[in-house]
């Protein structure tokens, strides 16, 4: 039977030294769903992202993705599985242009080997890579920045370039780490619009967000975390009213 979910997180626990960063976290991300992970700083959201993307190893628990045991994969293999991510602290490469930064997302899918590179047999493929880059840039409406370096583009565009680098590999699941952080009102508006257009293409999205209002506007389902624990999960309207969430946010 076809499963409803694309990602199933079960009983994930992770400690750093004596500090429990994640305590028995479980939830699913359904296919074609925008799921949001909210909570105050230090709630363990990014730690969970780093575990999903295999940068950290959990102490306990399992993650099932597309009927596979995700924990048996290495970080660099995830692109080929169809998982791509962005980072809270923007991770663009200054030595590369925006175009090359976006093309980097396709790296794992490039077939040319070292020998074909030395003999120049990779030209056709490189051309295709950069054609794809342009299509992604067109989709995100950032074509005019393609030949600039990251330090030469506005902050909001940098966030879109990161999303572009994740999108170019045509992922099934997109992980966005605080995509709206530091954006102004116009940029946030534009981001929301972009998210919906990505979702329309059938891509599932799991996003971390700080801004409750942004989350309420864009997600189908919300998981609330505090101090490494899941304290609520449900529809945005339900969760917004949940007492625990308000308490966590007010810091009482």
């Amino acid at each position: 039977m076809e499963k409803k979910y694309i990602l199933k997180i079960k009983n994930i626990t992770k400690s750093f030294g004596g500090l429990k960063a994640l305590d028995n976290i479980s939830f699913n991300v359904n296919k074609k769903q925008i799921k949001a992970l909210v909570g105050p700083n230090g709630a363990g959201k990014t730690t969970l992202f780093n575990i999903i993307t295999r940068l950290y190893q959990p102490d306990r628990g399992s993650i099932e993705y597309d009927q596979k045991n995700l924990l048996s994969y290495m970080p660099h293999q995830l692109i080929r599985l169809g998982i791509a991510r962005t980072f809270q602290n923007i991770q663009l490469i200054d030595a590369l242009t925006v175009k090359e930064n976006i093309a980097l997302g396709l790296h794992a899918k490039i077939k040319s080997n070292p020998l074909s590179v030395v003999f120049g047999l990779n030209r056709k493929e490189e051309k295709e890579v950069f054609e794809k880059t342009e299509r992604v840039a067109h989709f995100l409406k950032i074509e005019s920045f393609l030949n600039k370096h990251p330090e030469q583009v506005p902050f909001g565009i940098k966030r879109l370039v990161e999303i572009g680098r994740a999108l170019i590999s045509q992922p099934k699941l997109l992980l966005l780490d605080e995509p709206a952080a530091g954006l102004n009102e116009n940029e946030t508006e534009r981001l929301l619009n972009t998210l919906f257009r990505i979702w329309e293409r059938g891509i599932s999205i799991l996003l971390i967000e700080h801004d409750m209002e942004f989350v309420a506007n864009c997600s189908h389902s919300i998981v609330v975390m505090d101090s490494g624990k899941k304290i609520a999960e449900g529809l945005p309207s339900d969760v917004m009213n949940d007492y625990n969430v308000i308490k966590a946010y007010m810091g009482e």
Binding site: T53, R54, L55, M74, P75, H76, Q77, L78, I79, R80, A84, R85, F87, Q91, L104, G105, H107, A108, K109, R165, S169
Partner: peptide
Amino acid sequence: AAAKSFGVN
């Protein structure tokens, strides 16, 4: 660290 997530071994 980020390079791993771009699919680079």
